[in-house]
Amino acid sequence: MTDTSSNPQTAVATVATEHASRYLQQLCKHFAHKLPVTFDETAGQIDFSIGSCRLVAADGVLTLTLTAQDGSEMPQLQDVVVRHLLRFAFREELAIDWRPA
């Protein structure tokens, strides 16, 4: 019998920005065209085929929590989220530092 279970992995980044809610909404609206997304002004979730991204905006901080269905997919999930966030935040330089959750 073959083991087909996945090895989920979670990573979290806190991003200091006065535009946390704006970026949360922009990311969610952008991905909602092709993916299942739920969001409001302070929280959202984007469901990718390889995992999910939970977003929380509060007091000048955007918290991103990624859960990859398989740990080997985490770099790709991080790359997709970061590239899009940086595109929306082109007016400021954001520090995005991922840590295991």
Score class of each variant (00 low, 15 high):
A43V: 14
I46R: 07
A58I: 05
D79L: 05
G44N: 11
L24K: 14
E73Y: 01
D40I: 00
Q9D: 04
V12D: 15
G60S: 12
A89N: 11
T10P: 08
E41D: 13
L27T: 00
I96V: 14
F39R: 08
E92N: 05
E93C: 02
A16S: 08
V56N: 12
S6E: 06
G51W: 00
E18L: 12
E92R: 04
P75F: 02
D59W: 00
S5F: 09
H30R: 10
E93Q: 07
Q78C: 02
G71C: 02
L35C: 14
H84L: 00
P100N: 10
Y23T: 06
S21M: 10
A101I: 05
F48Q: 15
V37C: 11
H30F: 11
T14C: 11
D3G: 14
P100S: 08
D3E: 15
V80T: 12
A89C: 09
C53K: 01
A32K: 12
L85I: 02
T2I: 14
S21N: 08
S49A: 12
A16G: 05
E41F: 00
F39D: 13
A16V: 09
A13H: 05
K29E: 09
T67K: 02
A101Q: 12
R83M: 07
D79T: 03
R83W: 03
S49P: 15
V12I: 15
F39Q: 14
S49Q: 11
V15L: 10
S72Y: 03
G71I: 01
P100D: 07
T38Q: 13
L27V: 00
D3T: 05
E93P: 04
Q69W: 01
A43N: 14
K34Y: 13
A58N: 11
Q25F: 04
R99W: 15
T38M: 05
T2R: 13
D40E: 08
P75I: 00
R87C: 03
L86V: 02
M1W: 07
L94R: 15
Q26V: 00
L94C: 11
V81M: 11
Q76D: 08
